[in-house]
């Protein structure tokens, strides 16, 4: 990991981002667009700092993450259960597959109006949007993973005395785990989209709330700043939580090589 080659991409990437900020600052300095519509990186940074010191930023990041942690856990459990059913019963699979594929194509923001109708401006509505957004991806990935298990594993397990009721825990879920992990990662991303969409309208705290507050105050610095924070946390969790777990699993299963 500490070799020259491993360090280099990090250098390139840092340089790439510096370049983006430099171009951004140059465009701003050229003065083509009025600064209340197109703030500079410095203004955005300053606004984020203010939000931080006024105790707006951290509670909102925390609120969105807590909602995600709870909503996504529920979604993952439901998605795994439904995926297991679909993966083991051909009837369930043919019935539910098109339904869940359809639900997955629905933009996550499209869940917000119905959640407003059902739950009003309550916290449950946000959970509803997160769960509806991420469950289909988990269910589809789980069932696909199970359907692609080599039949030889099931045969071997059967001769070694594994009963049908022990199959899911001892063979089916472990054998499908790499695919399930990919589905969880995707489900998390969809849930994250849903959470921020729902918070735009129905919350008094959260990243979505801060975005909408920025719009109401005509504060482009705040809007862009919160967008950057949202990207940052999305990326961190994707790469360093889900990405790392997924890679570990794929290496253990022999699907990917260690560096």
């Amino acid at each position: 990991m500490k070799s020259e080659q491993a360090k280099r991409p990090f250098l390139y990437v840092s340089f790439f981002y510096l370049l983006i900020f430099a171009v951004w600052q140059m465009l701003f300095s050229a003065g083509l667009i009025p600064d209340y519509l197109f703030p500079s990186p410095v203004q955005v940074g300053k606004r984020l700092w203010e939000l931080g010191s006024d105790d707006y930023l951290l509670p909102s990041v925390k609120a969105t993450l807590v909602r995600m942690a709870m909503g996504f856990s529920i979604a993952a459990a439901i998605g795994l259960g439904i995926g297991l059913l679909m993966g083991t019963s051909p009837i369930m699979n043919s019935c539910l597959k098109s339904l869940f594929l359809g639900l997955q194509t629905l933009p996550t923001a499209a869940w917000v109006p119905i959640s407003l109708l059902l739950f009003g401006l309550s916290e449950q509505g946000i959970y509803f949007v997160i769960i509806m957004s991420s469950t289909p991806a988990v269910a589809i990935a789980t069932s696909a993973g199970i359907l692609h298990i080599p039949p030889l594993y099931l045969r071997a397990a059967r001769t070694l005395g594994t009963r049908w009721y022990a199959m899911p825990v001892r063979v089916i879920l472990p054998a499908a785990l790499p695919a399930i992990m990919t589905g969880l990662k995707l489900g998390w991303t969809f849930g994250w989209h849903g959470a921020v969409s729902a918070e735009l309208i129905k919350s008094t705290v959260g990243l979505g709330f801060l975005l909408n507050m920025g719009r109401e105050m005509n504060d482009a610095s705040q809007v862009i700043g919160i967008m950057l924070v949202t990207i940052l946390f999305g990326l961190l969790l994707d790469r360093f939580l889900f990405g790392v777990i997924e890679r570990r699993i794929r290496i253990r299963w022999g699907l990917e090589k260690k560096e």
């Binding site: 030889l152 594993y153 071997a156 001769t159 253990r252 022999g254």
Partner: peptide, 14 residues
């Protein structure tokens, strides 16, 4: 009556 298969059929997660 345990069977050894043409392919090893070992479980990669174990």
């Amino acid at each position: 009556r345990l069977m050894m298969f043409q392919e090893h059929a070992l479980f990669p997660w174990l």
